Amino acid sequence: MSAGDAFTAPERHEIDRAIRDAETVCRYEFSVYVGASEGETGPFAHRLHSTLTAPDRTVLVMVDPAARILEIVTGAEVRRDLDDSEVRLAALSMQTAFAAGDLVGGIKQGVLMLAEHARKPRMLHAGA
């Protein structure tokens, strides 16, 4: 998580916990960046995403609270299980929390919602 100075230690811990829980749920990696973007936010978020260890398997959530901007970038492999409408739904949920002044709660809720949508369905039984 970048720009960690914006959060208290307990808030950082809450966000880190949500990230770990999300990664456990869907087996993809999550990264959260909170801070000002350098230049246009879309290209900036994609540049950040491309620098991650495993970008194809990673979801990046970029929040610029001052500019009230949210970008979610999904890797190629993640997009197999997480479609644009599911990302938009999570973004809407996050924006609602942000508008209510709950930055930490919005991030946690959004990350976990993305993970739930990206979760591969469990096989209940296999054909014989």
Rank of each mutant, 00 (worst) to 15 (best):
E40Y: 07
V73I: 15
A45N: 02
T51V: 13
T41G: 02
I69H: 11
F30A: 03
S37E: 14
A100D: 15
E23D: 09
D83N: 11
L82S: 10
E38V: 08
A67S: 12
T74Q: 03
R68N: 14
V32Q: 04
L103R: 00
L48A: 07
L52T: 15
R88C: 01
T58K: 03
T24M: 03
V87P: 05
C26R: 04
E38R: 09
R47M: 09
A22F: 06
G106S: 09
R47E: 07
D102H: 14
E71D: 15
R17W: 13
V63P: 00
D81W: 04
A99P: 01
E23S: 13
D83K: 10
L92M: 12
I19S: 02
L52F: 09
D21W: 09
M94I: 03
A67W: 13
V78Y: 06
G101E: 04
Y33I: 14
L82T: 12
S85E: 15
S85Y: 14
T41S: 08
D56V: 08
P65C: 07
P65A: 03
L70G: 13
D83M: 06
P55R: 01
T58W: 02
T96K: 15
R20L: 10
S50V: 10
F30P: 01
V25F: 04
S37N: 09
Q95G: 03
R88S: 02
V61C: 04
R80G: 05
R20Q: 07
E71N: 10
P65V: 06
R80L: 04
H49C: 07
T58A: 02
L60A: 05
S50T: 15
S93E: 14
R17C: 03
L82E: 10
E23I: 13
G35P: 00
T24K: 11
V34K: 07
V73G: 04
T74F: 00
R20K: 13
E23K: 11
G106E: 07
V87S: 01
G39D: 00
V78N: 08
A22T: 02
G42R: 07
T51N: 14
L89S: 15
P65H: 12
R80P: 00
S85T: 14
V25W: 01
V59N: 00
I107M: 05
I19W: 11
E23R: 13
T41M: 06
R80S: 05
A66V: 12
Y33L: 15
R20W: 11
V104T: 11
T24N: 06
R20V: 13
R57E: 04
I69A: 08
A54I: 12
C26P: 04
R57L: 01
A100Y: 15
L92G: 12
T53Q: 14
A100C: 06
L52M: 15
L52E: 14
V104G: 06
P55Y: 00
R80W: 06
A66W: 11
H49K: 13
R17Y: 14
M94S: 02
R27P: 01
A90M: 05
A76P: 07
V104K: 11
L48M: 09
E29L: 02
R27A: 13
V32S: 02
T96A: 15
L92F: 03
E23Y: 05
L48Y: 14
I72M: 06
G35T: 03
D81S: 02
A91Q: 07
D64I: 03
V34W: 00
T24E: 10
P55S: 07
T53V: 14
A91P: 02
L103A: 00
